[in-house]
């Protein structure tokens, strides 16, 4: 019994030893936030709320990417999936006047794009980088070609304060006063984590992403897992697209993703292919983006604004190089699976 306790203590210590940097940074961050909140609650809230907003499409995009990669398919077409979904969601809303239809169609469009990627990378065994690139260019072309002037969807999706929670200091405004897709994103992080690590489907997904042949030999249908996951992942990207056009902007513009799909890709790798990691990475990026805006607002730093503009990107590189380092992708991602015989 004591032996077991010892063992657990050891594990805990080992864990601490391995992750001390993370915890230290985390604690420091919380302290810093609370200190700032004490000094200037309004600005602190504003920055943190903005951080959440900046991070939402990135988290969704990264979730899309990691669901695919966990089952062995690299997806660099997130950008295209998001863009065309944003378009579909907006057009549907503009024509039907119903935002729910819009979101649903956005998600369905994303799923269809996921299905296309699945066909290309699973059935046709195209190189997966090519499959994703095809999606990106195709989405850019289709949305620009079919873009229509003068459509309007009316009001965009509004925040829903969550009762008393929204009145809490600091976290109320930041976490509990958001529009529905943002809430869904929070929930999705947990759901995807739960599915990946605590369900049968997740176990099989990870097996397929690491060693598809092993999964195959115990009767797991590798192709089915990959198809379904890519379609679901497409749906998540579709939600990201719906977020962009219906919740964040309230309109569609050509190429409105502006590279967010690629940043999401970076966020996914940064987060080591885990939902919480991706969330953390997206929040970090979002925080840096919000800080960049806030520095400009305050006018405190008298340097050319281009240098302030570099902040999120440089910070990402510094944190990545300094604290995160090497990460290990699912072993089978990028490799088409061939059944024997």
């Amino acid at each position: 019994m004591t032996d077991k306790n010892n063992n657990q203590d050891n594990k805990f210590l080992k864990h601490l030893k391995k992750n001390w940097a993370k915890y230290t940074v985390g604690i420091l961050l919380i302290v810093a936030i609370l200190y700032n909140y004490d000094r200037d609650p309004k600005v602190t809230q504003a920055v943190l709320a903005s951080m959440v907003r900046h991070s939402t499409p990135l988290v969704l995009g990264a979730l899309c990417g990691l669901i695919g990669e966990r089952s062995g398919i690299i997806n660099i077409g997130i950008e295209g999936q998001m863009l065309i979904s944003a378009f579909a969601a907006f057009m549907t809303t503009a024509y039907t006047g119903n935002i729910i239809f819009g979101v649903v169609l956005g998600i369905l469009t994303g799923m269809f794009m996921g299905y296309l990627l699945a066909i290309m990378s699973i059935a046709l065994k195209l190189d997966q980088i090519i499959g994703g690139t095809v999606l990106n260019i195709l989405a850019l072309g289709i949305t620009s070609y079919f873009y229509q002037v003068g459509l309007s969807m009316g009001q965009k999706i509004l925040p829903i304060p969550l009762g008393k929670l929204a009145d809490l200091p600091l976290v109320g405004r930041v976490l509990f006063n958001n529009p529905p897709i943002t809430y869904t994103t929070f929930i999705l992080v947990f759901v995807v984590h739960y599915i990946l690590f605590h369900t049968k489907w997740g176990l099989r997904t990870r097996a397929v992403g690491e060693h598809p042949r092993a999964a195959d030999t115990v009767g797991v249908d590798v192709f089915k897992i990959r198809y379904v996951n890519l379609i679901i992942a497409g749906g998540v990207a579709g939600l990201a697209g719906s977020f962009l056009s219906l919740e964040a902007v309230g309109s569609f513009e050509r190429a409105m993703t502006n590279g967010r799909g690629f940043v999401a890709l970076a966020v996914m790798i940064f987060g080591r292919w885990t939902p919480f990691g991706a969330w953390g990475a997206a929040l970090l990026f979002g925080f840096a983006s919000a800080m960049q805006t806030q520095i400009n607002f305050s006018g405190a730093l008298d340097i050319p604004y281009q240098f302030i503009s570099m902040l999120p990107y440089l910070l990402t590189i510094v944190v990545l190089a300094g604290f995160v380092g090497r990460s290990r992708a699912p072993a089978a991602s990028g490799v088409p699976y061939e059944k024997e015989g």
Partner: peptide, 20 residues
């Protein structure tokens, strides 16, 4: 071996015949 390297022994054993 048809084992997923990053899985625990337990996960490898139940894979494909999971109980929920």
């Amino acid at each position: 071996f048809m084992l997923v390297p990053v899985f625990t022994v337990l996960e490898n054993i139940v894979l494909g015949s999971e109980t929920t």
